[in-house]
Design a protein around this nucleic acid. Structure first.
Lengths: 210, 210
DNA sequence: TCGGACCGACCGACCGGTCGGTCGGTCGCC
DNA sequence: GGCGACCGACCGACCGGTCGGTCGGTCCGA
């Protein structure tokens, strides 16, 4: 009986590499992280890495994909708990903020590193933005349909929401002495809800549905 | 009397290098542009470039600086023509959009390239964002003070405005078949004015001053 | 003993920056 | 006015270093 399953063993090695790459990319950025750095951090060798992955780029892509997936899943889970459209939007906003607040590294990879990875990943970045903006647009459309919000150009509104969120997080990441990211939720919520034409009464109601 | 002023001659060569670097950076990004590429495009040599500039980085910084300056100057000029605070905000928005629409290359350098230039320029990027967000915040503060707009957190609102604008332009830059950037002005204006609490009556009034 | 996981020395492309050299033009001097 | 010393803009071969990727080899469990 094998003490350790070789497949399991290999998988864990693979995982170690992924983890090491994740934090290395987050710390120094894609271009400034050498494959040797990842190898060292994962306590393996360059050859070992190239046994599990075809290229440095592939590692990065996989990281990007799974990270984005996790975030989307979290948001969708939180949103599913709410029935009212505006509450859904609030939940989405809150979830993104709290998730990043608790996973600064994740945020760094998704925001700073993707940008710093160069033109090769522009298509990926674009797809990611599209994905999240689409998510938001869905909630806004729903809000419009149910009459919770007056008709509006949800296309542009979703881009605005995404861009705003993006900028808030990016600023928090770059700040010297970063405060709590969640602290900006109330004000951000107010501004964004207002931008979508949510009635003042509903805005004043506060967003503390849980 | 010299037919050509040597200082003038040198300046024009310097300018040629700057121009070549500008479009090269815009086309391939900072990291993927070799100094030799710039030299070729400027019809000069690497040595010639290093005679006029101390480093590749210095070229990029100078480009960044002057480009941002030009944009800010344009915005401030347009804003100065308006008296009413909301109209000022509209003018700023419109100017940014039309300027980028007419200078796609400028936009590429300011948006895509700065991001793609890597961590070395993070501070610069940050400063640039700060600068523009600050500009916006000034207009919003004024609008609040004159009562054109109810009190609001202009700190976060300016970040939202900037982030939104940023995202709209970035999308336009990355689009396969980019439509006219100015076309998004009406919807963007509406959403952003609403986010600042501008009365619906004023929004409906349209933004076609000047 | 066989093979898959892993190792790490090595390769070669690339690139920012350097530096000795060239050459057209200018200036002082006769 | 002509000539030699000089200057400085510009040239491009070259250097040093980096880094993604390769490959022959080793080790260990079955």
């Amino acid at each position: 009986m094998p003490r350790i399953d070789p497949a399991e063993q290999s998988r864990s090695r693979r995982e170690r590499i992924l983890d090491a790459a994740f934090s290395a990319f987050a710390k120094r950025g894609y271009r400034d992280t050498a494959v040797d750095d990842i190898a060292a951090a994962a306590e393996t060798s360059k050859g070992g890495i190239y046994f599990h992955f075809p290229s440095k780029e592939a590692i990065f892509r996989e990281l990007m994909q799974t990270t984005a997936d996790k975030l989307v899943a979290r948001v969708e889970r939180a949103v599913a708990l709410e029935a009212e459209p505006v509450a859904k939007a609030e939940a989405a906003l809150r979830t993104v903020l709290t998730t990043f607040a608790g996973h600064r590294t994740m945020a760094r990879v998704l925001f700073l590193d993707l940008a710093g990875a160069g033109r090769a990943f522009q298509a990926e970045t674009n797809a990611l933005h599209e994905r999240f903006a689409g998510l938001i647009k869905g909630y806004l459309d729903e809000a419009v349909q149910t009459g919770a919000v007056p008709p509006l150009d949800t296309e542009i509104a979703s881009v605005v929401w995404f861009g705003a969120l993006n900028e808030v997080v990016a600023r928090w990441l770059l700040a010297d002495k970063p405060g709590s990211l969640e602290d900006s939720y109330p004000a951000l919520r107010e501004v964004l809800l207002r931008s979508a034409g949510v009635p003042e009464a509903r805005i004043a109601q506060g967003g503390a549905a849980k």
